[in-house]
Design a protein around this nucleic acid. Structure first.
Length: 752
DNA sequence: TGAGCGTAGTTTTTT
DNA sequence: ACTACGCTCA
């Protein structure tokens, strides 16, 4: 590419005349309208929880277009997640009645990748560079550590990954890392490894997620002409969730927006919960300094939560210092107070929450309007078990995503090697998968040769195949593998990516490997591979798919059925539910001990913001619970109610279920008093004694009545046909024909 | 190459 | 308590 600008899409034709009747402004309140109308010059929109932020964003973009202030191609809209980007695209399209095309909307990473591909040479890459994910990064680091004989026990690869990422979050290239940090971090190893890591990335023609931002900033700083082009191009810049930006993203934005200065950042300092991954609340605080004369608009009218919930959340967050400060208010009717409920232990907590959900559901409330928001993902298990027992459908959000699963990454690695034979990381992943009998010794020879000649491993193998350095056995294996790869590469020219994947999975023996595997999750993996092939059919080229995999990994597991959502508080940001359950409000768990230990007051304040996020997810009812004892790292430990419980204003809370255990809870001091000891004992007995009874009461008794018996053939929505192997209350062990042995709820199967 | 054993680490997560 | 990983030995 001689002239990188050549590839730019053509400018749009001049737009329609400004619209006189801006009817789309009608539904907005005054401040919202202000945020929409202030199109020119820097604007900071402080949008409290539930104040119609998304609406403002959408309307503002639509307004700029409808008023003819800019063409789509002049607009840059940045988000953190692909989901947010997609929603923005959709909503603006909906508002205008026609899909908006040609504007730059996407995540920081996707937009950076797009820019970098056009100017790759300027940062030492080729335009077809590979984007590495966390897994690849760690593998590469591991190799570097091995070569440098750094003890992985004392200095684990993950630690290096974390340190390097934090440097990249601050846009610090190896030579820019402050002297003191370079000397101190991991006893100096971090910096030297960082240097080599960057060299290796360049050699591999690869960039990790952090590089996308950092190299983009570097590009802008080192090529003023390029920067100028983009500055001119983007007349309007818009950023969502601004409080989550890290330094690199901040620099990126500032550089791009310095041209026209029409930058609008939308965020809420009270919802900043990602400092641990490099986000700087400071960015929001210094906005006015960097953009003098910036207009600041505060969205304070809340349309989501009832006054009690809002008051409780507001008073809680008021305990934080260094806020920009907002006063949320609402017009809604009073509604319920925040319910606070103390229980004996986590299992009683799960039972209480489950029963509440069941009762609401029976009253006709939808499960999809309820959520259990936990502090740590380990907490989800107990709730899952309880919901299964009660036969309440639920979904757990989070955990491994589709493209992060081992079998999917392996399959994708095959495609990567086919698309770019130089992709050593991908090649190493699949070279002996399925097992081809290639040992460490053989691979060592390949490594040495590749390193010595400065070529890729595949090239090294090809060279070595012409010599006698390899033993006959591996030589034969490699010859076959090279033939396979060559053949697949040829086939990739004539087949769609889906067809190619099908061929490769079959001919490589990879699918066969999992079919032969007798572990419990093997059948699921085979299914995932099938699903991958189906997913691939949406893509026309291998390259477009691979870009998708590296940047747009997501869970599309959202079935439209009515389910309770179980997720972490972090995952809940930006969502809302009628009813929210907030379990585990105990010292040590929430605020999390680790947060307090590692970040002190700052950590505590971030935990408090998390509590604020949790409460403000609720439209009608928020239920806070805390347990007197809980198992932590396998040990039963007694716990005190969270200080956040005390911080909730008494006039806006109500103690739910005052009987039993709550007796031990001192309502005034919000602590477990010494008198509680007795309460514990009584409660413990009660909890233990009621357990089996509960199961009898709540477990649907229809199992045997339905005539389900061992051997019965059934159909399951997700797993297909199978036979009942065992009965366990309302849980069935089913040998599925396709998916293998699984435990499922009786209510989810049909007789056939 | 794979089973078996011991040890260390268990907050939050996107791209 | 549980797991995941890395190491050893057959």
């Amino acid at each position: 590419m001689n002239d990188p600008f050549e590839l730019m899409e053509p400018e749009d034709e001049p737009q329609a005349a400004p619209q006189q009747n801006a009817g789309y402004l009608d539904g907005l309140n005054e401040t919202q309208r202000e945020a929409v109308a202030a199109t020119d010059g820097p604007v900071l929109v402080l949008a409290g929880a539930g104040t119609g932020k998304t609406r403002v964003l959408t309307t503002r973009l639509g307004h700029i277009l409808l008023q003819g202030k800019a063409r789509p191609g002049d607009i840059l809209a940045v988000t953190f997640t692909n989901k947010a980007a997609r929603e923005m695209q959709e909503r603006v399209g909906h508002m205008l009645g026609t899909p908006v095309e040609g504007w730059w909307v996407g995540t920081f990473h996707a937009l950076s990748a797009r820019i970098l591909r056009r100017h790759a040479e300027a940062v030492g890459l080729k335009s077809n560079f590979v984007i590495l994910d966390t897994d690849d990064q760690v593998r590469l680091l591991k190799q570097i550590l091995e070569a440098r004989e750094i003890d992985p026990k004392r200095f684990p690869p993950r630690t290096f990954s974390a340190v390097i990422q934090r440097w990249k979050d601050r846009s610090l290239m190896p030579d820019k890392v402050p002297e003191s940090e370079a000397i101190e971090a991991l006893e100096g190893h971090a910096h030297t490894v960082y240097e080599e890591y960057q060299q290796q990335l360049q050699r591999l023609n690869a960039a990790d997620f952090g590089d996308l931002l950092m190299l983009c900033v570097h590009l802008f700083q080192s090529q003023p002409e390029t920067l100028k082009y983009y500055q001119n191009r983007f007349r309007y810049v818009l950023v969502d969730e601004y409080q989550d930006t890290n330094v690199a993203q901040y620099l990126w934005l500032r550089l791009l927006a310095m041209g026209h200065q029409n930058i609008c950042c939308v965020g809420d300092d009270d919802q900043s919960i990602y400092s641990w991954r490099g986000a700087e609340v400071g960015n929001i605080l210094r906005f006015e300094k960097d953009f003098p004369g910036a207009k600041v608009v505060r969205l304070e009218r809340n349309y989501r939560s009832t006054p009690h919930i809002l008051a409780a959340a507001s008073e809680l967050i008021a305990n934080n210092e260094g806020r920009l400060g907002k006063t949320l208010w609402t017009d809604l009717d009073e509604g319920e107070k925040v319910r606070v409920h103390g229980v004996w232990d986590s299992s009683e907590e799960a039972r209480w929450v489950g029963d509440e959900i069941e009762a609401k559901h029976t009253r006709g409330e939808r499960l999809s309007d309820m959520a259990i928001l936990v502090r740590t993902s380990a907490q989800t298990r107990e709730f899952e078990e309880r919901l299964i027992t009660l036969a309440i459908p639920y979904q757990v959000i989070g955990g491994l995503r589709f493209y992060e699963r081992q079998e999917i990454r392996d399959a994708v690695a095959y495609l990567r090697v086919i698309a770019s034979p130089d992709d050593d990381l991908a090649f190493q992943r699949i070279v002996n998968l399925p097992k081809r009998g290639l040992g460490q010794a053989t691979m060592q020879i390949i490594h040495m040769h590749a390193r010595a000649r400065g070529i890729s491993m595949i090239m090294a193998i090809r060279e070595l195949l012409t010599t006698d350095e390899l033993k006959p056995r591996p030589k034969k294996t490699f010859t076959e593998l090279m033939n396979d790869l060559d053949r697949w590469r040829t086939e990739s020219q004539i087949h769609t990516p889906a067809e190619l994947m099908d061929i490769v999975l079959d001919e490589s023996g990879y699918t066969e490997m999992w079919k032969m595997d007798k572990s419990v999750d093997a059948p699921g993996r085979v299914d995932n591979l099938k699903e991958l092939v189906v997913g691939l059919s949406e893509f026309e080229t291998l390259t477009s798919f691979l870009e998708h995999v590296s940047l747009v990994m997501e869970n599309d597991d959202s079935r439209n059925t009515d389910k309770v959502t179980v997720m972490t508080l972090h995952g809940a940001k930006g969502l809302e539910f009628d009813t929210v359950f907030l379990p585990g409000w105990e010292e040590g768990l929430f605020p999390h001990q680790r947060s307090l230990d590692e970040s002190g007051t700052e950590g505590l304040e971030e935990e408090r913001r998390l509590a604020y996020v949790g409460l403000t997810r609720a439209r009608k009812q928020a239920n806070v619970t805390f347990a007197g004892s809980r198992r932590i790292y396998g040990q039963w430990q007694s716990s005190l109610p969270s200080r956040f419980v005390e911080e909730l204003p008494t006039e806006h809370i109500e103690r739910a279920g005052e009987q039993g255990l709550s007796r031990g809870f001192d309502a005034d001091q919000s602590t477990w008093g010494s008198a509680g000891k007795q309460g514990y004992g009584a409660g413990f007995k009660r909890a233990q004694a009621s357990k089996p009874q509960d199961d009898l009461v709540f477990a649907p008794a229809r199992v045997s009545a339905d005539g389900l018996e061992i051997g019965q053939r059934i159909f399951h929505q997700k797993f297909g046909y199978g036979h009942i192997q065992g009965l366990d209350g309302d849980k069935l062990d089913i040998q599925f024909e396709k998916a293998g042995l699984k435990k499922v709820m009786a209510s989810f199967v049909e007789k056939v």
